[in-house]
Structure formats: C-alpha cells, structure tokens
C-alpha cells in the first residue's frame, strides 16, 4: 500500500508549513504542551469528522450532527442531575446518538429521501426537542457533579482523557474502514453503487449504518462537549455541522462519495483546530476564523477537483505508454 498518497501528503505539508509559520513568530505555540492542548481542543471536531466521513463516503451528508450532539449533551447533563453514574451516562448518550442517527438512516434507506433533506429536517427537530425537554433552561457548572465535569480533563499518561478518546476514535475508525467488511462497503457504496448491488452489498443498509455510526460519535461528543465547557443549553455547538463538513472537505473526502481516508479527515479537522487556536496567539481577531475556514474549504475543493480530473479513455497505443 502506498504510504503517502498525494492528497494526504500535501495536506500534511500544508499543516507543517502552517505550524512553522506560526512558530517562527511564536515558538511557544509548537511546544508539546500547547500542541497537546490543540489536540484536546480539536477532539470533538475530529470525532464528528470521522463519523461524517463515513456518511460522505456513502454519498450522503449528515447535517444533524451538531443538533444530535446538543441533544445528547443535554440528556447527559439531565441524567447527571438525576444522579445517574457516569458509565451509564456514557452508554446512554452513545445509544441515544446512535438511535438519532438511525432515524436519519432509516428515512434515507427505507423511504429513499435524499439525506440532505432528511438531516435538514431532523436537525431542527433534534434541536427543538432540547427546548421541549428543558423549556429553554440552562444547566450550569454548579448543577453538574465534579466527576461529570472532571472526566474529560483527567490527565492520563500526559494527555487528558478527551484527547485519548479522540485518538481512540481515530484508531477505531481506521480499523473499521480498512479491516472490516462494513468499512469496505462504505467505500464500495459511494464509489460505485451500481457495482455494489452486483456484489450483494445493500446500498441503503450501508448508508443507514454510516448514519448510526455518525450519530453514536455525535452522542459521545455531546457528553464531552457539555462536560468540558460545563454548560448545557439549546444552542450549544450551533452551526458546528458546517465545521465538520468543512473538515471532511479540506481532508479530501470526496463529496461525491467513495474516496477518502481517515488520515485526511483527521488532518482536515486538525487544520481547522490549529487555525482556531493560533488566531488569538498571533493576535488576529477570532472573527477572522469563519472567512479563513471558508477560503480553506474552497481551496480544498478546487484542489481535489483538479487532482481527480478524469483523464478520459486511453485508446491510442502511444498514449498508454506515455501515462
């Protein structure tokens, strides 16, 4: 297997160049401790980007991830308020997230509704449900137990648990995508749905599985988010779904499906995470972040399109030798 494929290599080089540029003026930014902080801070984005990547691989899109995250985060906070022990809360948010993902997946699979319509709808429904549950009330730090808040920040082997969960997510996703039939099916369904049918892979069922995966990761991230920022309300992570899609697009996950790697999605998320963390350091107003990530998305799309341009049929003999 070719270790370095051009897309990922170029993105890695871009990240290194970005870090070098920042370090030239602010060497403190690349200190291991600060990089660990960036990784921790970017973990939610990484986890969601991994789930979104599975969905995009199957030619779908999940715009409901941020709403799913917010709903699960609120449920986690409410359960904590009711005295439920942390392991149970973790299990519950993952299951709830998966169930919300399954709703998306079933609507796509069983009713054949385009994923963008389904998740546009469930996005507002999921977020609205938080209001129905709480009447718009906030759950603040003092209403949460210390164990609940401390878990993501607990440092194990030099890194907070939050960062470890991000790393574990990366490893699990890499294993899933390259070493399990389901992972290969994600690629197959998006790459050539017609052929997938011929090989006995159900396109709809695979898409549904991707939504469940994305939902479960969103549920887990919901707890991490609420515990880390120690607050839960209706609008947490509003608009975050676009950052997630942006991370995937920058990471070279083809929106047309079928092509993309875990390394790409992770680096796409890290790229955005580094920019977000570097802006205050280099003294640029954080209000620049949105425009920068928008430009990064456009550059990434243009670059990916250029590198994937169909070379056309090769009929001439000498042309075949030349390529």
């Amino acid at each position: 297997m070719s270790l370095l494929k051009s897309r990922e290599t170029i993105l890695a080089l871009a990240i290194l160049a970005l870090l070098a540029a920042i370090a030239s003026r602010f060497p403190g930014f690349v200190a291991p401790r600060n990089l660990a902080r960036v990784l921790t801070d970017t973990s939610p984005l990484i986890l969601l980007a991994l789930g979104q990547m599975a969905v995009i691989l199957t030619k779908c899109i999940d715009l409901s991830v941020a709403a799913n995250l917010a709903l699960c985060g609120m449920v986690a906070a409410l359960m904590n308020g009711a005295g439920v022990p942390l392991p149970l809360i973790l299990l519950a948010v993952v299951l709830l997230g998966a169930a919300l993902g399954a709703v998306n997946g079933l609507l796509v699979w069983r009713l054949g509704i385009p994923s963008i319509v389904v998740t546009l709808g469930t996005m507002t429904i999921y977020r609205g449900s938080i209001f129905l549950m709480t009447g718009g009330a906030w759950i603040n730090a003092h209403q949460m137990s210390d164990a609940f808040k401390a878990f993501p920040r607990t440092v194990v082997l030099g890194l907070p648990v939050m960062a470890w969960i991000g790393l574990a997510g990366i490893a699990a996703m890499a294993l899933l995508l390259t070493r399990t039939p389901l992972g290969r099916a994600f690629h197959a369904v998006g790459g050539n749905p017609h052929a997938a049918v011929y090989t006995g892979i159900s396109v709809g069922r695979t898409q549904c599985a991707a939504f469940v995966l994305s939902g479960a990761l969103a549920g887990l991230t919901g707890y991490l988010w609420v515990a880390r920022y120690a607050v839960a309300y209706v609008d947490i992570a509003a608009g975050f779904e676009l950052d997630v899609v942006a991370a995937c697009v920058i990471g070279g996950i083809a929106i047309a499906g079928g092509a993309g790697t875990v390394a790409g999605a992770v680096m796409g998320a890290l790229f955005l995470g580094i920019i977000k963390n570097a802006l205050p350091v280099v003294g640029i107003s954080p209000f620049w972040q949105m425009a920068i990530s928008g430009s990064a998305i456009l550059l990434a799309i243009a670059f990916n399109a250029a590198s994937r341009r169909d070379p056309g049929r090769i009929i001439l003999k000498q042309a075949e030798h030349r390529t």
Partner: peptide, 24 residues
C-alpha cells in the same frame, strides 16, 4: 457467478479487496 459486461469494480479499493469484497 458472473463476469459482467460493464465494469462492476471499485476504483478506490485494491485488487485483492475488489476480488473479495462481500466474502473476505
């Protein structure tokens, strides 16, 4: 089993993965 007229293969997967997709 059938060798189809149209290509029913996956460009992004490896040769071995293409051969064994569905029954690896």
């Amino acid at each position: 089993t059938a060798i189809h007229q149209e290509t029913v293969l996956f460009d992004e997967l490896t040769v071995a993965e293409n051969i064994f997709i569905g029954h690896a």
